[in-house]
Amino acid sequence: MIDVKGLTKAFGDHVVLNGIDEHIYPGEKVVIIGPSGGGKSTFLRCLNLLETPTSGTITFKGVDITDPKSDINKYRQKMGMVFQHFNLFPHMTIMRNLTLAPMKILKKSKAEAEAKAMELLARVGLDDRATSYPSQLSGGQKQRVAIVRALCMEPEVMLFDEPTSALDPEMVGEVLDVMKDLAKDGMTMVVVTHEMGFAKEVGDRVLFMDGGVIAEQNTPQEFFDHPQTDRSQAFLAKVLM
């Protein structure tokens, strides 16, 4: 579904991604873990071109989206993104946050967009907060709304950039539950996370990124039980203490 070839990204002289070849299959749940500064988030952000790759190509369903002539807005609609800091629009109600893009881009009517939004809000247990503003919600609630906002565009892939890292510990569970639910529905997901439990439970494949490359990849079972490289062993020793 997403094919990455020879992807590199440098900020000035600082090379963050150093040649990545990877393929993400439909329905697959890929979990990306690794130490800070290893390039996890940058890789994820390259997938929908929030970061412009320095070189290499990214092909989404057979179309090279790194080609400057391709209309990136069209492909971003198909790739939902959830951010570490939620990035809800603070000047709009929850309902407006959810219906803005479907109405502006998919040209849905207000009633149609709101019906879809309410249905999804109900699924994450927040249908009573439609008229609230983001500042009135807890962190966990905000992140659930952010997931719903991406889902309202009916994406084919969901990209999660450390979705629980900014949350209070007691709110992590409610967000992970929504993500697990989504995984059960067969959504293609690429998740950057520090939640090893989630990686084990939901992931089909774990990518261990360090030093701007995918240093190791395996099934979660194999990766956590028998890490192959010194770096992944050292990393797991630290995080699984």
Binding site: N48, N73, H85
Partner: peptide, 18 residues
């Protein structure tokens, strides 16, 4: 303004001017 706001808009598929 937090660049995350514009990124959130763009990631939904909204264009630069939208």
């Amino acid at each position: 303004l937090d660049p995350g706001q514009a990124e959130a808009g763009r990631s939904l598929g909204l264009g630069y001017f939208q």
